[in-house]
Design a binder for these strands. Structure first.
Lengths: 343, 343
DNA sequence: TTGAAAGCGCTAACAT
DNA sequence: ATGTTAGCGCTTTCAA
């Protein structure tokens, strides 16, 4: 590779016989230059392939055209979808995104916040995770937007989320409408508000339809085993215990899939004997057999709403008070796993 | 949030009654200061919560402690695993990673290279994608490491990959050993070297075992339909066509899963009537039913090898010529989909 | 319409 | 062991 050194504004200025100020104006199209000089400068830029040194620009302007994105696990289809949409949005607006994978590690999250701060990001987006955002390590006054994460109150923190309560309600209602009377829930046992809200929706639906709430049908898995394997095992346990049930609401699709596999292993037919519904509508839900009914979150909507909010905040747009918080609706996706038996 | 303005070295110097040079030395632990001044300076740093302004540092040093990561689709478990490992590696070394999702769009890739260049990244990692790397838009002399992407020759470009040829061979051999005679392949029709190599391995295995190569059993899907849906449809086509076959090698797990679903829809039993093997060992392969045999790539090995190589290059370590290219072995994971019938 | 010059925060060469 | 100073590449104020 030929060592084509990058050219600076100063050098362009010399080559074009103008001052650096003029070159800067041309580059940023800030007016106050003649068409003639514009052309002269532009020719040299094209010829030498000038690219802005963003470090210098950032230093000077205290803006970096960069945002930080905190995500628990990119290695999770639901999160990676979201990340993809956010990244796409900001790419179009000429921003770069630092994707920071915390693996749910609080120390790592704090370290990332420090790093983002020191790299002068113009704003931060947080997906999911705990309430506490380590705002105290941020030394600058930058906006923070959360998705599916209800932050403790701070001036500069905003949030956008799906209506998880409604999702829990709708999921349960779907099972009820298809004839289930004894509905189990398989969720993750943590104070993560998202799961709590889904559980609340489930309970309210039971109440509204006059069904009994069986505590022994509320399976709250440890964070470490709240995955496919864990819920498959838990479901096997439940089946062994002989406690009767005819419907399962799993609070994400992988857990739901674990449930379905466990049922299948025990020769319990879905949807005939037991109906199942999941949450998130990731690819496993429509590709498994029988296909899995689920609650679809508006991924694109969430990503766009959150991104545009952050962008506006970074550009000091006035944000109405009622825009500090957004809750997007979710919808039931009916598939085979909640199909009603023919009468 | 209180507007805690970030403090600069200059201010620290004033507060500690020392020069900026001394403060800088303390911060970077560059020696030539007394324990006494170290303490004095450190106290102020702790008290005011100083954080380095990385834009300034980058500008001064022409190094940013940042790497760019080009990836086709983060929204793909195999890639996201890889990204996760790479990110983890660099986080530990105090580097930040710009994850750039190209969606296989060449223009986007070029735009990203420009942006990374202008943000002074110290190195670039490319996952998969086409041979051509737009090195010409890079104005600085930074190293580039590729994973699963055989780049056109350049001085500063290195690569690490799995042995895809061997993978194709082993997959086919596994089917042959379990008794298959007429083996179909479902792959992606593109000049992507990865798929080409897997196909070559398949052909060589057939040859070595004296099996006929049926052109009509080589299903090369369009890039746009080389996914779960596409291969499910293609397999349905093949079944309808009545061309006999007793084994299928699908060049990734989602395609393999599509094949299995199509077979199941046509009441063809796996592994009794037809055996199936995939590639990548993503979660669907061990959680589907019957579980899917597959070829496992050494994700962690790939990520670490590539990352440490890039790190060494960024720090101007001498790299031996034979280290410019790495090929990691793959292994067969035997599961139910290639189980032999009891005699 | 253009230029001169200051300064963003930092490092490092050189001086002491 | 410590200080002085130049300069990385850029924007912007002020002056012309």
């Amino acid at each position: 590779m030929d060592k084509k050194r990058s050219i600076s504004i100063k050098e362009i200025a010399k080559l074009a016989n103008v001052s650096v100020a003029t070159v800067s104006r041309v580059i940023n199209n800030n007016g106050r230059f003649s068409e003639e000089t514009r052309k002269k400068v532009q020719d040299i830029i094209d010829k030498y392939g000038y690219t802005t040194n963003m470090a210098a620009k950032s230093l000077r302007m205290s803006k970096s055209k960069t945002v930080g994105l905190i995500v628990p696990n990119i290695d999770n289809e639901w999160f990676s979808h979201l990340v993809l949409e956010i990244e796409k949005y900001f790419f179009e607006k000429n921003y770069s995104v630092f994707i920071c994978n915390t693996s749910q590690d609080e120390q790592k999250e704090i370290a990332y916040f420090k790093s983002l701060d020191s790299k002068l990001v113009d704003g931060i987006m947080c997906i999911s995770g705990i309430e506490e955002i380590p705002t105290d390590v941020i030394t600058r006054n930058i906006p923070i937007v959360c998705i599916d994460r209800k932050p403790k109150d701070h001036n500069n923190v905003y949030y956008v989320e799906s209506n998880h309560y409604s999702g829990g309600y709708l999921a349960t209602e779907e099972l009820i409408k298809k004839g289930c009377k004894k509905i189990a829930i398989v969720s993750r046992n943590k104070t993560l508000s998202v799961n709590k809200q889904r559980l609340e929706g489930y309970r309210q639906a039971l109440k509204d339809y006059g069904l009994t709430e069986y505590k022994e049908l509320q399976i709250l898995l440890d964070p470490s085993s709240a995955n496919y394997e864990g819920s498959r095992e838990a479901m096997n346990q439940l089946i062994k215990s002989k406690i009767p049930f005819d419907g399962v609401f799993a609070t994400n699709d992988w857990r739901a899939y674990g449930v379905m596999v466990a049922l299948s292993e025990n020769h319990i037919n879905v949807p005939h004997d037991v109906k199942v519904i999941g949450f998130d509508d990731i690819s496993i839900s429509h590709s498994c057999h029988p296909s899995l009914s689920t609650i679809r979150q508006d991924t694109v909507g969430l990503a766009q709403k959150a991104s545009s909010l952050l962008l506006n905040l970074m550009n000091d747009k006035e944000i109405q008070m009622e825009e500090r918080r957004f809750i997007l609706p979710v919808e039931v996706i009916q598939r085979d796993s909640t199909q009603k038996d023919p009468e």
